[in-house]
Every structure is written in C-alpha cells, then in structure tokens.
C-alpha cells in the first residue's frame, strides 16, 4: 500500500511537470468540447449539454489513460528505468497501479473543465446529480479504468510498437463506446468487443445519472462495470504470471 501511495505521489509531480499532460487535462477538454459543440450544433434534442459533457468526459478519460499511463511505459523504456522498475522487490502492478490512479485523479480536472465550458460559455444548462451518485460513479470509474489500464500495460511491456498501437486505438475505442452512435447499430462482433470495454458502460451510466429519478443501484451498467472489473482483475493475475516469466526469459525491457 505504501508503494502504491508513493508511486501515486510521485506520478502527480511527474505528470504535472509535463506540459503535454497539462495540455491533456486542461486544454484538450476545452478543444474537444468546442469541436463537438459545433459538430452537433444543429442537434434538435433538449439535453445536448449533457450529451456533450458525457462524450467529452469519456474521450478525455481515454486520452488520459492513453497519453499518460500507457505512454509512460514507453517513456520509461526509452529512459532505461522500466527494467529496474520491474526488477525491484516491489511488484510491478503496485508501482504502475499508483501511476494509473494518479493520472485518473488528475483527469477529474478535465471533467470540471468541460462542465464549466458547457455550463458557462455555451450556456447549456446541465443539472448535476447529487454528490453521492457522483462519488459512486467516480469510484466505479476509477477502479474499472485502473484494472483496464493495468491489464493493457502487460501487452505494451514487450511490444516495441506500443506507441503506435496506443495512437491507433483512440478512434476505435470512441466508436465502440457508443459516443458517435448507438452500439445496437454496430455489427454483432463489434458489439461483443464493446461489451468488454468499460467505456461503453460508463457512457451508459453517465447518461443515466442525469435522470434525477433514476436509482443508480438498479442500473445494469453498474453491474456490467463491476463484472468487467472482476474479469480484468483475473486477467491481470493471469497476465502477470505469463509476462513475468516471459520477461525473465527474454529480458527485453530496454530499447535495444
């Protein structure tokens, strides 16, 4: 636990010192909100503000995972510290887990920024749900994204084209989370993939919490997220066993 907290604290400092990360959590939500606002400005349904908020938030969450947590691995590899991280007596998943959680906490800023822009610049009224719901949703979001990010990190550990795949994954994930269109309209095999992504459930959940009468505990999205988190948890354990062995045998955590 101490490792987790130390890594978390360190990551706060590291992330905030990188101007690209500051851009991702502060400027990017503003830009994304403006872009989506203009694309959807003909849209003739009432809750366009909420729609914007949900989509921009999820897009930014994904960016924060992609551009920070996963590309941190590549950065560490390039600097030559990934090997020592992995070889340290503390388990890799605690060190990396701390980093992911730190990034996700920082990503909360992007929620606030897009909320302020939509509410005050575009003057679209968003009625926020009560605090307990928000905290529950945020907690769910935190655990599901942390497990996903940890699970993905194992695939990127040995992959030299990690940064390439990171960039390529962005739009497919947006598409599969139901940001652009309802998932039911996609072919069946894509629907199955989208069920395996927490973003799909989060988009659904965020849409639901704006309905004041909705009881979050009855939402299928919550259970979907929890089941998914458990699945990813098992995935992490399995991958950890496989990769630890593989890395010890191949030993390729450095650039060359």
């Amino acid at each position: 636990m101490r490792v987790l907290l130390t890594s978390l604290r360190l990551q706060f400092k590291q992330s905030l010192s990188r101007s690209t990360y500051r851009f991702v959590i502060i400027i990017q939500p503003i830009l994304n909100t403006i872009l989506l606002y203009f694309i959807l400005s003909n849209k003739n349904f009432v809750n366009v503000g909420e729609y914007l908020f949900v989509n921009v938030s999820v897009m930014n969450l994904w960016s924060s995972i992609v551009f920070s947590s996963l590309s941190d691995l590549t950065r560490e590899k390039r600097m030559g510290v990934l090997g020592s991280n992995f070889a340290s007596p503390v388990k890799f998943q605690w060190i990396y887990g701390g980093k992911v959680i730190a990034n996700l906490i920082l990503a909360l800023w992007s929620f606030a920024v897009s909320y302020l822009i939509i509410q005050y610049v575009f003057d679209l009224n968003i009625v926020l749900p009560n605090v307990y719901t928000l905290i529950t949703v945020y907690f769910l979001l935190l655990i599901s994204f942390t497990t996903l990010s940890l699970f993905l990190s194992y695939f990127f550990l040995l992959n030299r084209q990690a940064i390439f795949w990171i960039n390529v994954l962005e739009y497919p994930i947006y598409l599969l989370s139901g940001i652009a269109t309802s998932i039911q309209k996609l072919p069946w095999f894509l629907q199955i993939i989208s069920w395996l992504l927490p973003t799909k459930w989060i988009v659904g959940l965020l849409h639901q919490i704006f309905n004041a009468k909705y009881n979050i505990l009855t939402s299928a999205n919550v259970y979907g997220l929890l089941i998914l988190t458990a699945l990813y948890g098992i995935g992490i354990i399995v991958m950890n066993n496989i990769m630890e062995r593989k890395i010890l045998v191949e030993g390729q955590l450095e650039v060359y």
Binding site: L36, I39, L40, N42, K43, N167, V168, Y171, P172, Y174, L175, I179, A180, T181
Partner: peptide, 16 residues
C-alpha cells in the same frame, strides 16, 4: 485507422 476516424466523424455528423 483513418477509416475508423472517418466513420466516427461521419456518424457524429449524420446525427444532424
């Protein structure tokens, strides 16, 4: 990747 990006934006735009 460019194709999926196109599909994403086209779907978004066609909502209008």
């Amino acid at each position: 990747q460019p194709m999926i990006q196109v599909i994403f934006f086209v779907l978004l735009i066609s909502k209008n």
